[in-house]
C-alpha cells in the first residue's frame, strides 16, 4: 500500500477525535507486516498531533481559566498536564514538533548565553 493509502486508513480509524478500537481491528486485519508497520507509525504521528503537553512548575496552578485559554489556542486537542519544578515560573507547551518556552528557566538560560557572548 502507498503512504497516502495508509494515511486514509489512519483517518478512517477515528470516530470523531477518538481512536476506535473496533475500526482499527477491522482495518488492520488484512494488512501485511510491512503495511502494518507503516500504519502504526502514521497512527503514532496522528496521536502525537492530537496531544498538547503542558509543563507547569506546580500542577495545581492549572485551573478552568487556563484550560479554557489552552482549548481556544489548541482546539480539538487533548491537553496533558505535567509537573516540572525546574521551570521555576511560567510554562512550557509542546504541540507536536513545536515547543513554546515561556518559563523563567528558559529566560535565565538565554540570559547566560547572551552574557557569555558579549563579555569575556
Amino acid at each position: 500500500m502507498t503512504r497516502k493509502q495508509l494515511q486514509i486508513l489512519v483517518e478512517q480509524s477515528y470516530t470523531g477525535h477518538s481512536l476506535d478500537g473496533a475500526k482499527v481491528e477491522q482495518l488492520t486485519s488484512k494488512l501485511s507486516h510491512k503495511d502494518l508497520r507503516g500504519y502504526i507509525r502514521l497512527l503514532k504521528k496522528r496521536e502525537q498531533e492530537q496531544q498538547v503537553h503542558v509543563a507547569l512548575p506546580v500542577a495545581s496552578v492549572y485551573n478552568q481559566n487556563v484550560n479554557k485559554v489552552l482549548l481556544e489556542v489548541f482546539p480539538d486537542k487533548e491537553i496533558l498536564i505535567e509537573e516540572d519544578a525546574l521551570l521555576l515560573l511560567g510554562a512550557k507547551i509542546t504541540a507536536n514538533d513545536m515547543v513554546y518556552e515561556m518559563s523563567l528557566r528558559s529566560r535565565l538560560e538565554d540570559f547566560i548565553e547572551k552574557v557569555e557572548q558579549l563579555y569575556d
Binding site: 515560573l89 513545536m98 515547543v99 518556552e101 523563567l104 540570559f111
Partner: peptide, 22 residues
Amino acid sequence: IIKKLEGRLTDFGTDAKTTNVG
C-alpha cells in the same frame, strides 16, 4: 549581573520562545 536579572524578573513578559523539535 544581579541588577540585570532583577530587571528581567520585573519585566517578565509572556512572549514565548518557539523551537521546532524532532
